[in-house]
Design a protein around this nucleic acid. Structure first.
Lengths: 347, 347
DNA sequence: CTGTTAGCGCATTCAC
DNA sequence: GTGAATGCGCTAACAG
C-alpha cells in the first residue's frame, strides 16, 4: 500500500529529461518545449507524483502558509471570522495552520511557536484574553507580519481589524432614546478590556450628547455571560430609580438580562428596552427576541486576511488599523411570548 | 527589522561547537555534556534561533502535521467537532492544516491536494456533500491514513466516526410513545443521504416494534432547513388523520416545524410533540424549546483525532468504524410562550 | 531550450 | 563526547 514516494528525479528519468526541466514545467515556465511539457505532464500523472512543497519552501526560504489562531472557535462569531479568512487565504493559493487557543494564552503561545517553526509567512490572531504585547514581540520583531482581529493588544504596533464599538454603542443608545427611553443602563462586562472601554465610552458619549445621565450608578458590570446578565439585571431591578432600558455588553448578557426580566414578570422588548452587542450568539440561531449591534464577522475575517496577504506580498509593514462598521439590527421582537402578551391585553 | 535567519550553524559557531552537537541538544539527547548543553541553550535564546521543522521533516521524510477539513465551520456542530480534534492534535505535539470546504467538493479536493503537497501525515475529513470514494482514492492509496467523521463516504474503506442515528431515532420515537403519542410522523430531510436512511430506519424499526404504523404517509421529506420544516409541517397539518407528534430530521427542521405549528395556533411541545436531531444549532444558544437527539460533537472530534494519531504512529491500517452514542436531551420545554399559555389556561 | 552544479537547514551515520 | 561528511526534494544559477 505504501507507495515508494516518487520525486522529480523519477519523473525526469521516466520522461527522459533532467530534473530542472521537470521543475520548470511544474512552475509553468514558458521556457520549455510544448512537446516535452506534455510528456512530462503525462508522466507525472502516470506515476502519481506529488509535488513536495516543503522542499521547495526550504530552498526558496519562503512559504505560502499562514497561521490563524482564534480564541474560541466554539463561539459562532469567531467561527464565522475564521471562515471569512479561510475563503481569501484559500483563494490566494495559500494554506493555513489554524488553531483554537480556547482563551488560553499559554496554549496560544505554544501553537504560535509551532507555526513559526513550521515556517508560516504571516499570522492572523484573534488574541486570547490576557495576551500581552510581550507575548507577541519576538514574533513581530522577527519580521513576520501579524494582523490582530476582533481584539487589540495594547502596546503592540501591528495591523488590526476591530469593530466599531463606540459607534455601535452610540447608535444603540440613540435607538433607545428614539423609542422614548430616558433612563438607560449599561449592563455586563468587566472594565478591564479595551472592548469594554470602547463600548462604554460610546454609551457615555451618546448619553451625554442627548443631555442624559450616564453616570456610574447606571453601569452594572458583570461576567460577559448569560449568568452574568441575570445577576446584573437583578441588581438593576433593585435600584431606586429603575431604568427603563439597557444596552448590554454582548448578546449573552442580553439573553441573561431577558431571563432576569421575565423572572420579574417584566417582558423584555415590551416593558423594558434591551439591546445587546452581537458577539457570542449566531444570528441565524433565530432568537428574534433582541435588537442587536452587529458586525459582519465573515467580512471582518476577509478583510483581515486580505490585509495580511498584502503585507506578506509587499514586505510592507505599515500598521493599518481597520475599523469594521457595525449596524443596528432591529428584529421582529420577542416572538411568540410577546405576541401572546399583546393578544392577552387586547382580548 | 527583518532578522537574517539564524540556523544551527550560526548557533554552533557562536557556541564554539559543531552543527551536530547543536542538533543533539535540540533533540534533548543525553549524549551531550551538561556544560555544552547549557552553553548551546544560552546561545539559542540569545540569538533568537528558531528551529526549522520543515527542514527536519524533509530530512526525515515524516511530519507531525495533520489535515482537518470540515464541510461547514459556520455550523456549530462542526465547529465543536473541529475544536475537539484541535485539542488532541495539539496535545500530541502535532499541528493541523485546517480548512473549511463549505460543502463544496471541488474546493475540498483542492485543499486536500494542497495539504498533501505540504506533507501532512494524515487527514481527518468531515466530507462535503457529494464527496465520492473516487475523490479520496488516490490519497488513501498513497498510504496516508484518513479518518472520516460525522458522515461516511459509501464505498471507501477507511476508518470513520459517526453518530448512532438509528439508535437515536429509535430512542426519540420511544420517548414520544411514552408520552402517549401513537401517530408519529417523520419530518424533513432528503432520502438521498446515508444519514437520512439511518435515522429513517431507526424511526421505522421503533414504530414497528411498538406495533405502530410507520408507513410512507407519515414521512414528510423536505430540505433539511428551517424553511423546509415549515413546509413539511404544513403538509402534515393538511392531512386527514393528523399525527400528534413528529421526529424531525434535524433541529433546523424542528424549529421550522415549531414555526409552522405556531402559525396554526398549535403550541409545539404542548399540543404537539416535537423532537429533532441536534445537527445544526448549538445547544448553548439557549433555545430550550425542543427535545433533541444529541451527540457530543467535541467528544466525537477527539475520538476521530485519537484514531488518526493511532494510525499514524502505528502504521496500522485496520479500518475501525466507531459509532458515537447519542442521548435524548429533554429540555424544560418551550420557555416563556409555554409558561404563559399554561398560566392563561389556569387563570 | 535543456543539463549540470550547488546549496536551502537539518539529522544521521561514522570516525576521532 | 564531538566533528566531518552525506543526502532529504527542490530551485537557481549557470553552461551547453
Amino acid at each position: 500500500m505504501k507507495q515508494p514516494k516518487v520525486t522529480v528525479v523519477d519523473v525526469a528519468r521516466a520522461a527522459g529529461v533532467s530534473k530542472s526541466t521537470v521543475s520548470l514545467v511544474l512552475q509553468g515556465s514558458s521556457l520549455v518545449n510544448e512537446a516535452t511539457r506534455a510528456r512530462v505532464g503525462a508522466v507525472i500523472r502516470e506515476l502519481g507524483y506529488v509535488y513536495n512543497r516543503s522542499a521547495a519552501n526550504l530552498r526558496q526560504s519562503k512559504s505560502k502558509i499562514v497561521g490563524i489562531v482564534v480564541n474560541d472557535l466554539t463561539n459562532s462569531f469567531f467561527a464565522e471570522l475564521a471562515v471569512g479568512m479561510d475563503m481569501v487565504v484559500q483563494s490566494a493559493g495559500y494554506i493555513q495552520f489554524m488553531a483554537n487557543s480556547a482563551e488560553n494564552a499559554d496554549r496560544q503561545a505554544e501553537v504560535i511557536a509551532s507555526m513559526r517553526e513550521h515556517g508560516m509567512a504571516g499570522l492572523i490572531l484573534s488574541p486570547a484574553r490576557g495576551t500581552t504585547a510581550a507575548d507577541l514581540r519576538p514574533l513581530v520583531d522577527s519580521g513576520i507580519p501579524v494582523v490582530l482581529v476582533a481584539r487589540n493588544v495594547p502596546g503592540l504596533k501591528v495591523s488590526s481589524v476591530v469593530s466599531d464599538g463606540h459607534a455601535g454603542a452610540a447608535a444603540a443608545v440613540q435607538h433607545l432614546i428614539d423609542l422614548g427611553h430616558r433612563r438607560i443602563a449599561f449592563l455586563g462586562g468587566f472594565n478591564d478590556t479595551a472592548v469594554f472601554d470602547e463600548r462604554m465610552r460610546g454609551y457615555r458619549d451618546a448619553m451625554h450628547e442627548a443631555g442624559l445621565n450616564g453616570s456610574d450608578e447606571l453601569v452594572f458590570s458583570s461576567a460577559p455571560s448569560r449568568a452574568g446578565g441575570v445577576a446584573a439585571v437583578e441588581r438593576l431591578l433593585s435600584t431606586a430609580d429603575r431604568p427603563t432600558a439597557a444596552l448590554c455588553f454582548n448578546d449573552a448578557v442580553a439573553f441573561g438580562a431577558c431571563d432576569g426580566l421575565r423572572s420579574a414578570r417584566i417582558e423584555p422588548g415590551v416593558d423594558f428596552g434591551v439591546i445587546g452587542f452581537d458577539d457570542v450568539i449566531e444570528a441565524k440561531t433565530a432568537v428574534p427576541a433582541l435588537t442587536t449591534v452587529s458586525v459582519d464577522p465573515q467580512g471582518m475575517g476577509r478583510r483581515a486576511a486580505q490585509l495580511l496577504l498584502k503585507q506578506i506580498n509587499s514586505g510592507d509593514f505599515e500598521h493599518e488599523a481597520l475599523v469594521a462598521s457595525v449596524r443596528l439590527v432591529v428584529r421582529e421582537s420577542c416572538g411568540a411570548a410577546q405576541r401572546m402578551k399583546r393578544e392577552a391585553v387586547t382580548a
